Computed example of a mutant assay.
Amino acid sequence: MKKYKKILIDAILFFVIIGLTLYGVFHGEDLSGLKDAIKESNILWLIPAVPLVLFFIAGESIVIWHMLDCYGIYVKERLCFLFSAVGFFFSCVTPSATGGQPMQIYFMKKEDIPVPIATVILLVVTITYKFVLVVVGIGLWLFAGGFLAEYVAEARWVFYLGILLNVGCVILMCVVVFHPSFAKKTLILGAKLLERIHILKHKEERLDKIERSMNHYHEAAEFMSSHWGMIARVFVITVVQRFAMFAVTYFVYRAFSLNSMNFFEVMFLQAVISVSVDMLPLPGGMGISEGLFMVIFKKVFGEALLIPGLILSRGLGYYSELFLSAIFTLVAVVVFQVREHKKSKVK
């Protein structure tokens, strides 16, 4: 019952944020003018955006497939793609992307992948995913100061906060992974303190859950320390995966016959938005992503094309990801139900 209640709350929150975001973007705008501007865009420049979104989803499936292979578990690439799509769909619709990994583990378990192994793989994926954003954010901060001052000045504190939160997240995860005994003691001490001041009720199963979680982190540390070559490949794949999504905005930019900025400049500005919103507790960074786009890309698209640019960029970069991953999530439900039915027949 609690599970369905949480899903309902997340769904309500998701649609409320969509409603507020649409109101904030379109309130007071000339909708007929927006429609005309979008119709006049060159659709040929928009065509590459959809394959980039598909590659963004597929990038994680490549990582999952390779890491399963390291454990001696063979799973078809198309099933790994479905695991990835499920993760992205539930990450898009839940605050701070908290729903993605539990649902991935649920579906991976249906394919007889042990939960501890699935958990370790997804932990490595998450750490690498966050680490890439940290590298991009710090790299821009250190080496592109003038560029950021010109385009990101009004949003620089949100960007710095995003870097800080992502760095904190990576450090925390690394401490938990590579020093699980220290993390375990800290978590138990923190839980007992919260129980003592009556913020949490005393539950024995909470300590058991902490124990199990620390075991998973310890296994992740062992995997990472013994598979450095694999971790390096995962990092490279994740970099390409992330930049594929950042590149979507460039093709939107060119679709409006704009060419004063080059590919990397537009892509790095989109990266600033991703770094800024990734750790914020909003489904898909909705609301704040649109707001940052309107601030950061104001000079890039100009007043007349800013909202049309936002609609196409966000539509292709986020909502198409949501739509495609939703379709493949439905496919995953059907596929795994059929496979489960076949297994029960064999037994």
Rank of each mutant, 00 (worst) to 15 (best):
G287S: 06
R254H: 11
I237Y: 02
G291R: 06
I231S: 01
F243N: 04
I237K: 01
L292Y: 00
M279E: 04
Q241F: 00
R242V: 04
V248I: 14
F268D: 07
Q241N: 12
M224E: 00
V275P: 10
L282P: 07
A255M: 08
G284S: 11
V272S: 10
G291M: 11
G284N: 13
I237D: 01
Y250K: 09
F223K: 03
H227F: 01
H227P: 03
S289A: 14
H227I: 03
V236F: 06
M261F: 14
G284V: 10
W228E: 08
A232S: 13
S289H: 04
V248K: 09
V240A: 13
M230G: 00
M245A: 11
S226K: 15
S289L: 02
V248L: 04
V277W: 06
L282C: 05
Y250P: 07
A244K: 03
F268V: 09
G229R: 08
M279I: 05
W228P: 10
F268M: 15
V277H: 07
L292F: 01
Y250L: 07
V272G: 12
S289R: 03
Y250G: 08
P283H: 07
R233L: 04
Q270G: 09
M261K: 12
F293S: 03
S289F: 02
M286I: 05
M245S: 12
N259K: 15
V252M: 10
T249A: 15
F264R: 03
M230L: 03
I237L: 12
Q241D: 02
M286H: 03
S260K: 15
V277Y: 12
E265T: 12
S260P: 00
F246R: 03
N262V: 08
S257I: 00
Y253E: 12
V234K: 04
L282G: 04
R242K: 14
V239L: 02
E265I: 11
S226E: 08
G285E: 08
W228N: 06
P281R: 09
S226H: 13
E222K: 15
S257R: 14
S274C: 11
L269N: 14
S260I: 05
M261N: 10
V236A: 10
E290G: 05
Y253L: 10
R254N: 09
F223H: 01
F235Q: 04
F263N: 12
L258N: 11
F263Y: 15
N262W: 05
S274I: 10
